[in-house]
């Protein structure tokens, strides 16, 4: 349900970059979305369609989401594992002394633009 708020943030950032680079129209915004970022990609693209079409700069602009798989690091046995499968507890040594390496991204990767 917070995807619309995030879309407003993306639009603000994209507008700033577009102004800096004298861009007239943005045709694609590519996002890196982590698997455990709590952002639901299809809701993000739904909200994007509604909000982006209200902006001259972003009319018809597509939002593409690259999904970044979540990986956790275990500080005790020094191994990586898939976060979504095993959560906070390391499947190798059962330690809880673990932290997320990647998979929490909500990043604007690049824009495809015309000027």
């Amino acid at each position: 349900m917070h995807e619309l708020g995030i879309v407003f943030y993306i639009i603000r950032d994209v507008k700033a970059v577009a102004a800096e680079n004298h861009v007239e129209h943005v045709s694609t915004v590519v996002m890196d979305i982590g698997e455990v970022s709590t952002v639901v990609p299809h809701l993000l693209t739904d909200c994007w369609r509604w909000a982006a079409d209200k902006e001259e700069l972003l009319k018809g602009c597509e939002l593409k989401c690259n999904i970044i798989p979540a990986v956790t690091w275990c500080d005790d046995c020094k191994q990586e594992y898939e976060t979504v499968k095993h959560g906070k507890t390391c499947p190798h040594c059962h330690s809880g002394n673990t932290w997320l390496l990647r998979g929490n991204e909500v990043e604007i990767k690049e824009l495809v633009v015309s000027s």
Binding site: Y9, E107, E110, V113, S114, S115
Partner: peptide, 18 residues
């Protein structure tokens, strides 16, 4: 035809807020 190019950003959406 307008010139099309790619601008790399690589920036967290939350960076400004933080």
């Amino acid at each position: 035809m307008d010139e099309v190019k790619i601008i790399e950003i690589k920036k967290s959406v939350f960076a400004d807020n933080e």
